[in-house]
């Protein structure tokens, strides 16, 4: 099962290592990972991590992540309760004759052309994972020169913050799990 974990952590050196080490030490592969300083408080960073793990293992990992001194808050984002986005830049082969077609097709994905040379151009698109996959797949027939895509970033739906200080006690969370 793919799980998205959103963490608020101290924005300082070594924290990424601790988080990544905790996951790798238990044999979990990180599918994607995104780290940026939070715009609300520059001393805090938000990490959004997608890992493949079963539910029990994930519960243990969440507790271990909570235990790390530099982790302020851990939220496991479950399916349907969040908005997630990725962004991709793709460089494709497109000579001047094809450019009009590229622009038209980019419209389908609400993608933009952000750079062009006589032989290539770069397109930018954002969306959820499925859309980005489809976007990349679609433009393959031009010939992909290069692809760069971000990991997933996510926020939970509704009024609460995705990662504020836990108001619930650990027992409440554990009770839910029992």
């Amino acid at each position: 099962m793919k799980t998205t974990v959103s963490l608020l952590v101290e924005n300082k050196f070594g924290v990424l290592c601790r988080v990544a080490g905790l996951l790798s030490g238990r044999g979990f592969n990180i599918d994607s990972l995104n780290v940026t300083p939070s715009t609300l408080d520059p001393s805090v960073s938000r990490m959004t991590i997608v890992v493949e793990a079963n539910e029990n293992a994930m519960e243990q990992v969440t507790k271990q992540l909570n235990k790390l001194i530099d982790v302020i808050k851990v939220t496991t984002i479950e399916n349907g309760e969040f908005v997630d986005r990725e962004m991709a830049l793709i460089k494709i082969r497109a000579n001047p004759q094809k450019r009009a077609e590229v622009l038209r097709e980019a419209e389908i994905f609400r993608a933009k052309v952000v750079d062009a040379t006589p032989d290539t151009c770069i397109l930018e698109a954002t969306g959820d994972e499925g859309k980005i996959n489809a976007f990349i797949e679609f433009f393959k027939h031009y010939g992909l020169v290069d692809v760069a895509r971000t990991g997933r970033i996510a926020l939970s739906r509704g009024g609460g913050k995705t990662a504020k200080k836990a108001s619930k006690t650990p027992e409440d969370e554990l009770k839910k799990a029992v």
């Binding site: 243990q60 507790k63 271990q64 909570n66 235990k67 006690t169 650990p170 027992e171 554990l174 029992v178």
Partner: peptide, 15 residues
């Protein structure tokens, strides 16, 4: 808290 439910299913956890 990470010790609870780690090895065994617990009925009444108290952290």
């Amino acid at each position: 808290p990470s010790c609870i439910q780690k090895n065994i299913k617990v009925d009444i956890p108290v952290v």
